[in-house]
Design a protein around this nucleic acid. Structure first.
Lengths: 145, 145
DNA sequence: TATTGTTATACTCTATAACTATA
DNA sequence: TATAGTTATAGAGTATAACAATA
């Protein structure tokens, strides 16, 4: 191991810093905006193409019931559409509507905006690059657990 | 435009990847272990030295009431002690007990363990260094919001 | 009047269990 | 029997409101 970073130390540090950051992000919420699970599910559905609720739940690593609640909210706001599978009466295909795609493009979101301002104000170019590079690693880490 | 589009992209990516990771971390829980808010409050108290619940709540960026609940759980498990301030009857000083310090040292925790294993198994040394370097940045980011 | 801390209550996001319909 | 999805219920981790004690 020698000069390797201690994986347990990295793990513990990530756990604490991430929880602190997310705690703050979750509570910043403006009228009519997507919540965190809604954003997450919508982005995932967009990148996955047409798929089902169960498949989406597996990708997001939450229960199908939880995903169902989130998808219900997204549908109520016109962000997604449901279309029954003609070949399998149990399945319902989901897809992102134009409004949903617009919500994804238009990244205006109070939480993201606040985060972006804090990044622009207090972080160097090099640090921003570090943070940018690490987002996919965190994603991969979450998927590998 | 207020700032780089880059910054918004980093912000949005961090928001999603962090929420995915934390969702998973929160639900891994073994008998008798510290929960995430407990670990976080205990570590914060340890690094801050003797302080009060209100000060700790400000540091952790949660309400005093929420912090009170977490501290009650920590005290019930013998991890912290309370000592009334002799000079100000409203205030109660908190400190980490020996048992609490041991819990911090002994990083064995199902969530941390799982994270550490995933890190050890699926990430290169360079990636571990990246992740290690970014934890303090995330901490600073959370504090600057 | 302001601050520390507590109690009561509610919301969000998640979980598990139990169910229906379809395969 | 197994899978997709729904409904009901519960728990964790936050919040706000209202209060008592102290400054």
């Amino acid at each position: 191991m020698g000069h390797d970073p201690d994986v347990e130390q990295v793990a513990a540090a990530l756990r604490l810093s991430i929880s602190l950051l997310l705690r703050h992000l979750r509570q910043v919420k403006a009228e009519g905006e997507l919540t965190l699970p809604e954003s997450s599910a919508l982005a995932r559905l967009d990148s996955a193409g047409s798929t089902t609720a169960a498949a989406l739940a597996r990708l997001e690593q939450i229960s199908p019931q939880s995903m169902g609640a989130t998808l219900g909210a997204l549908q109520a706001r016109g962000m997604i559409e449901r279309a029954p599978d003609p070949e399998d009466g149990r399945r319902v295909f989901l897809s992102v509507t134009e409004a949903g795609r617009e919500a994804l493009r238009d990244r205006r979101n109070a939480a993201v905006e606040q985060l972006a301002q804090a990044l622009a104000a207090g972080f160097s170019r090099a640090e921003l690059n570090q943070l940018s590079a690490v987002a996919p690693l965190l994603e991969r880490l979450a998927q590998s657990i």
